[in-house]
Every structure is written in structure tokens, then in C-alpha cells.
Write a protein that binds this DNA or RNA. Structure first.
Lengths: 76, 76
DNA sequence: ACTATTTACACCTTATAAGGTATAAATAGT
DNA sequence: ACTATTTATACCTTATAAGGTGTAAATAGT
């Protein structure tokens, strides 16, 4: 049981992709990134490159920016 | 004249650091990243690793997340 | 203006993300 | 249940970020 933490970013991308009714391959092509990258992104990999993530987010009219940490994370 | 675009993330970090009255070296130590990384971050380097950026943002109670693109960027 | 501190930039090495391919698992459609 | 499609995981190579060191430029303090 891996229980990998699903980040809000991962959830965001997956949900947006679903709304567009496209699969990971199509998303990767539209974004100009590799299929493997989209997979890693939706799986919550933490060490991705910002510029590549932004290539994907741009399709949804979004980009990476600093947001307040959710308070449950603040004390560890 | 380089005219490197200063991203909102870069500005955010620099401003927060200033309010804490610490220099780049101190920030890098607190965050557990290299000095060079902090420099690149404040200079707006686009290809940084998300996890390292988050190591810095955590000090300010923030983290990377998807935010709406500012509308001026939407059509190029 | 002078000096000390801080920040920027270049070169180099090492660590690792990105991406391809292949396979397995999961999910959806009938 | 069966089958097709989609998604996840592993192995490998290549590209490049991270970080150290050194030097130059910029900024701040007097």
C-alpha cells in the first residue's frame, strides 16, 4: 500500500484534463511535454521542473505561483 | 541590458526575505538549499525544481500551487 | 568618495529529471 | 465476464539543474 500523497497540483491537473475529456497522451502532446511527465505530474512527483509544469498549466489558463500553505501542514 | 523578466515568484521571495532582514546566504541556509539556488530563484529562472522552491517558500508559510494566469499573458 | 557587504555571473562537476520503451495493472464499455 | 483503452511502474540514456568556487558588479553605510 503505497499511499502516495496526492498533491493539490496533481488533483488540479487531473480534474482539468478530465473536463476536457482527453487522456494523458493527448495532454502531453498539447503541452509539448513527454507522456511520462504528465504521469509523474498527476502522481504528485515533487521534484518536477517548474517550466515543464507551467507548460501544462498554461493550457488551463494557470501557472505556478506561491499560495498560502494549508494550515494543517504548517507545524511539521 | 539583459532585461530578464522578473517573475512574481521571484519578487515574492525577494520581498519576503527583505522583510525578514536576512541575506541570500542566510535564506539558503534556513531553507537547506544552495546559495546559487536562491540567487537563481530571485532572478526568475524558470526551470527550477518545484521541491527546492517549496523548501524556500515553506519558510514563508507558502507553497507552489496553480494560480490563474494574469490576463495580459493569456494571448501570447 | 571610499569601503564593506551583498548580489550577479561564469566555469565546472555531480546528481537527477525528462523522456523513450516495455510491461503490468486498473478502468471503462459492451 | 470479456475486451479495449487508459494509466502506472520499471529500466535505461541523455539533458540539464544544483551547487561549489571564483570574480565582478552593485548596493549600502560612513
Amino acid at each position: 500500500m503505497k499511499e502516495k500523497e496526492l498533491t493539490s497540483l496533481a488533483v488540479f491537473v487531473k480534474q482539468r484534463r478530465k473536463t476536457l475529456k482527453i487522456n494523458q497522451l493527448e495532454l502531453s502532446e498539447k503541452a509539448g511535454v513527454g507522456l511520462r511527465f504528465v504521469r509523474d505530474l498527476e502522481q504528485g512527483k515533487a521534484s518536477l521542473r517548474m517550466d515543464k509544469v507551467n507548460d501544462v498549466l498554461r493550457l488551463f489558463g494557470h501557472e505556478l505561483g506561491p499560495v498560502e500553505m494549508d494550515r494543517t501542514k504548517l507545524w511539521q
